[in-house]
C-alpha cells in the first residue's frame, strides 16, 4: 500500500496555517510533491533504538522498537519486533498456527502477517446473526 503526493500537500508556509507545521515530527522527512510514500515500520524509531543499542554495545532488545501503530493500539493487536530473534514476541506470534499471509499466493513474502479472525458463536443460535 503506497501513497503518492499528487499535489503539494505539505508546504503550508502561508499564514495562518504555518502553525500546523509545529506538530510535525522532526525525525520524519517531509515528502515533496511528486514523490511516493508509504509505511516505513517507523524506521526513525528503529534507528533511534539502534543508535542507543550501539552506544551501549549490545543488540537491540525485544520490545525496544515500538511502532507508532503498535504503541497506540488499544487492544494490542499489533506486535512488532525482530523475527530473527527466536525469543522475541513477534517470533512467538508468528509461530501461532493461525498466522497467515495476505495474498500469500503472490509469493511476495511479506513481513507483515495476520492472525486469523475467530468467532465464538453460540451453537444454539443459527449461523445467520
Amino acid at each position: 500500500m503506497r501513497r503518492f503526493n499528487f499535489l503539494n500537500y505539505t508546504d503550508h508556509t502561508e499564514e495562518p496555517y504555518a502553525v500546523t507545521m509545529l506538530a510535525r515530527n522532526p525525525n520524519v522527512t517531509m515528502r515533496a510533491r511528486g514523490v511516493m510514500e508509504k509505511c516505513t515500520y517507523c524506521v526513525q524509531r528503529i534507528s533511534a533504538a539502534r543508535i542507543e543499542a550501539k552506544k551501549e554495545g549490545r543488540p537491540i532488545k525485544d520490545g525496544e522498537v515500538v511502532s507508532a501503530c503498535q504503541q497506540a493500539c488499544p487492544t494490542k493487536s499489533i506486535t512488532f519486533g525482530d523475527m530473527n530473534d527466536p525469543k522475541s514476541e513477534i517470533a512467538k506470534v508468528k509461530k501461532q498456527p493461525q498466522n497467515y499471509i495476505l495474498l500469500e499466493e503472490l509469493n511476495t513474502k511479506p513481513r507483515t502477517t495476520y492472525l486469523t479472525r475467530l468467532r465464538n458463536p453460540n451453537p444454539k443460535l443459527g449461523k445467520e446473526s
Partner: peptide, 11 residues
C-alpha cells in the same frame, strides 16, 4: 506548476 494531481490519476 501544480503537479500531476491535476490529472485524474489516483490511488
Amino acid at each position: 506548476y501544480r503537479g500531476i494531481g491535476i490529472w485524474g490519476v489516483n490511488n
